[in-house]
Amino acid sequence: MNQEHETETAERIVKLLEKNLDTLDGEVLARLKLARNKALEAHTENLTTSVGSSLASYFGHYVRQHRVISSAALLCSLVFVGFIVSQQYIGQETVEQGDAFLLGSELPPEAYVDEGFNKWLAQDINQQ
């Protein structure tokens, strides 16, 4: 109800102003201009605050979400690196278990089965 009344009043003022615009004196025009500028300033401030708070809210949300994504990515990377390292380690162990690697090892195959060598090593340890 009040809003309708205000709108009607505003329309009557606009009509009066249009009708008597040419007859208004300079002081009234200056006051109207000042009032208009104040109204515009107030409106702009309102808009900026509103947009600013929206941006802060959006950015905060982005940071929170980004942090979760970063943590998940870091965790995935660690798991992946762990998997690769373990596969290489297991792979190497498996490969070096073949007879070929035994034959290519630092000791000849007979050294691994020479009981005389074992006995001699045991004697050597006892003498030390």
Partner: peptide, 25 residues
């Protein structure tokens, strides 16, 4: 044949040892 299969995975020094020790093995 398993030894022959693994042979290319080894460096030349080890390959030489394999050849030298194969008969005894």
């Amino acid at each position: 044949l398993d030894i022959a299969h693994d042979y290319p995975k080894m460096d030349s020094k080890k390959q030489e040892l394999v050849q030298r020790r194969l008969n005894r093995w």
